[in-house]
């Protein structure tokens, strides 16, 4: 993993701190060109990985990247699936079965459920696999070395203790996409224990890591202890705690922790991108973080 990953929340009006800022972002990035310009700027600072949700608009960005292979030659994308709101809104409107029907194309669903009796275990995992394939379609031909499961789903499965489904996602990503599976979570300590239980070793986990303990379930100390004592490869997100921690302090803290392989951040302005990137370089150098 690269030391710095560029995120996409800012492109889709995801701002954890202000609905007003969300709307401003939504206006600023309503054209794909604005997204590409920001992405290009991030690339100009040396960032080489875009970590993004499977939002419909990402499909268009992917299309552009595909059609400009020279410009984006070594560019990597870490897809994060699914874009949950799409499904959550659909579940409210159509129900769970209706949602699956909506998102799985063709007759697969009909044939799979014909008769409505003996649903074998394999069938549900096939549905999961079909949904993964549907989400991955937009990245066809692009370099996606790590594919992440979004925290809404990771943590839902974690709470439901459906560890075999987490394992099935893990295995499918390796088998079908020859990529490394990753998990985004707001519950890193519990998730790591669960993944280890099903034999997943040294997993790539993306979690909130910040000096404030924001969205670090169970508290900062528990997280720090896991980072010190366990084997995992962490992408730190929400490093700035949605802007609540001054950048210097925020990045200084995260760079000083063990087992942090990457820092994920998103920004909408050139100034903020430049500032964050140079701070990460400064502190990485200070703590002599070795690139992987």
């Amino acid at each position: 993993m690269d030391q710095i990953l560029f995120g996409d929340n800012q492109f889709f009006a995801v701002n954890h701190i202000s609905d007003e800022k969300s709307r401003a972002l939504s206006i600023k990035f309503q054209n794909d060109r604005a997204i590409l310009n920001t992405l290009d700027h991030a690339i100009a600072t040396g960032i080489n990985t875009f970590m993004c949700t499977t939002h419909d608009r990402i499909a268009k960005i992917c299309e552009y990247i595909r059609s400009h292979p020279d410009t984006y030659k070594d560019f990597k994308i870490f897809p994060c699936m699914p874009y949950a709101h799409k499904y959550a809104n659909a579940v409210t409107e159509l129900g769970i079965v209706g949602t699956i029907k909506e998102f799985i194309p063709g007759n697969i669903f009909g044939s799979l459920f014909k008769g409505g009796t003996a649903y074998l275990s394999k069938d549900y995992l096939s549905i999961m696999e079909l949904l993964v394939d549907a989400e991955m379609k937009m990245f066809k031909g692009l370099n996606t070395p790590i594919i992440f499961l979004q925290n809404n789903i990771t943590d839902l499965l974690l709470g439901l203790r459906m560890k075999n489904v987490l394992k099935a996602f893990h295995d499918y990503i390796i088998r079908k996409y020859n990529a490394e599976p990753g998990f985004i979570t707001m519950n890193m300590p519990q998730l790591l224990d669960t993944l280890e239980e099903v034999g997943i070793k040294n997993p790539a986990i993306c979690a909130s890591i910040n000096k404030m303990g924001f969205r670090m379930s169970g508290g900062r100390e528990v997280y720090e202890n896991v980072l010190r004592t366990k084997k995992l490869r962490v992408v730190a997100m929400q490093v700035l705690a949605a802007g609540a921690i001054p950048p210097k302090e925020a990045i200084g803290y995260v760079c000083g922790l063990p087992n942090i392989e990457s820092i994920l951040f998103g920004a909408s302005s050139k100034t903020n991108i430049n500032e964050t990137v140079s701070l990460i370089h400064e502190y990485n150098h200070k703590y002599k973080m070795e690139p992987s």
């Binding site: 701190i17 404030m212 924001f214 609540a244």
Partner: peptide, 12 residues
């Protein structure tokens, strides 16, 4: 902001 007011939970 909500970050100023939110007590941590054990599971999010």
């Amino acid at each position: 902001h909500i970050t100023d007011f939110t007590p941590p939970v054990n599971f999010y």
